[in-house]
Design a protein around this nucleic acid. Sequence first.
DNA 1: AAACAGGGGTTAA
DNA 2: TTAACCCCTGTT
Length: 272
Amino acid sequence: MRKIIFPDKDFNLRHTFDCGQCFRWEKADGGYKGVAGEYWGTFIHTDKGIELETNCPDDNFWIRYLDLERDYGEIKKRVSLNPLMEEAVKYGSGIRILRQDFFEALVSFIISQRSSIPKIKACVKKLCEKYGRRLDEKGEFYTFPTPEELRDVTEEDFRALGVGYRAPYLVKCVKAVMKGEIDEKSLLTMDTASAREKLMTLYGVGDKVCDCVMLFSLAKYDLFPSDVWIKRVMCESFGSHDATAKADGEKLFGSLSGFAQQYLFYYRKNMD
DNA sequence: AAACAGGGGTTAA
DNA sequence: TTAACCCCTGTT
């Protein structure tokens, strides 16, 4: 167990962990606690910066996970296309797009469809506690289960976690990953359009889930995941229609679409 | 109290 | 383009 201090420039825990991109971080003792990969972490803001306590021996693991080498100041300038974007960027000024585990993101966002964040978090938590590995004595932290660990989980087992009609999607997803039909490494070599086409072959993975997986785990930033909130703000403020919101966003923001989407989403969702 | 709407979608018709 | 799908929560 050790401590690391990270600079808090363009980095805020609430913005990053509560902006809807992840489901395994929860508020604790004025900060956040959670798990990434094999490691647990507890984060808190201090006057020295952001302090992390973790069982991970390698700083670079968290630097990559938290995307700390990217200049978000520059990104924020470049997506501030109009007064609304300036507002949104100010509101979520400390958002960082996490580099999450591919399989975890895939399963989590399949579960997320047509659901609410507290419900999603509860399902994911049960999934980890039931099929993941315990990381600490107290049983506070569990890994996200691997495809192997979910290999024999049945539709009924998944239903017991409360995932409802998504259960068959999950069974098929695990099978496809186990068979190597869907493979992170090969997706990473593809451009966004090809990776999208490949991922969408999965039963239960449509436009939005696909975009979230690519943005939050494969570092594909030239896409604009469009859910009800994004559609709402695009229609209200950018002259879009539901059907064109995604394309309009990608046209406006290009290679920075994913970043712009997160600022807009977080801002609009908390503004109603 | 029971009914209803709605929630960060996707599929199949 | 549209209904049906699971299941929990908040509202009437």
